[in-house]
Structures are given as C-alpha cells and as structure tokens.
C-alpha cells in the first residue's frame, strides 16, 4: 500500500484529498504511479498528462518520474506552488 495525497487544483479535480492504493507488481517508479492513475480516465487522464503543469513529491521531497516507489511511501501530486 502507498498513500496518495492531492492538493489545490488537483484535489478539486479528483474530488478527494487522499487515498491508499495497492501497488501493482510492475509499478516501481513515480512514472509508474502516474500511469496507473492516468489510466482511470476523466480528470485523472486530463490532469496527469505530460502537457499539464503538475509536480510530485515522494515522502515529502520533490521527485521526478524515475524516483523509485516502494510499499509504505507517501506520494503527493500537486500544481506548481504559488506561496509567498
């Protein structure tokens, strides 16, 4: 199981702030998780495609597509930040 968190525009588009999912055996990277989520279609496919502006963090550090994912990780997807 991994914990998924969504923030700001993505939280609203997906209609949820968090969920827990079981990793499929062949999902070992952040790109794998993104592909899994985008395959749900609808807002998931729309928001999590390469052309959209989104960022991701693994265990609260900014991550890239090749960042490894393992059981127990906290993975977050969110828009580019706009604080300050």
């Amino acid at each position: 199981m991994i914990t998924l968190l969504y923030f700001a525009r993505l939280r609203e588009a997906f209609g949820m702030a968090s969920e827990r999912i079981v990793l499929s055996a062949d999902t070992r990277t952040l790109e794998g998780v993104r592909t899994m989520l985008a395959a749900r279609g609808g807002a998931w496919a729309h928001e999590l495609t390469a052309g959209r502006a989104f960022r991701a963090a693994v265990n609260q550090s900014i991550a890239s597509g090749d960042t490894p994912i393992k059981d127990g990780d906290e993975v977050a997807f969110f828009p580019p930040v706009t604080g300050g």
Partner: peptide, 19 residues
C-alpha cells in the same frame, strides 16, 4: 519550492493562482 497554493476570490469567481 515551498508547497503553498493560493486560491483567489475575484469578481469573476474563484480561481487558483498560476505559478
């Protein structure tokens, strides 16, 4: 870098601020 997000309430409705 810091994960904050702003949502504005304007005369045209609510909108997320773009980076």
């Amino acid at each position: 870098r810091a994960p904050f997000w702003k949502k504005e309430q304007t005369g045209k409705g609510a909108r997320w601020v773009d980076a």
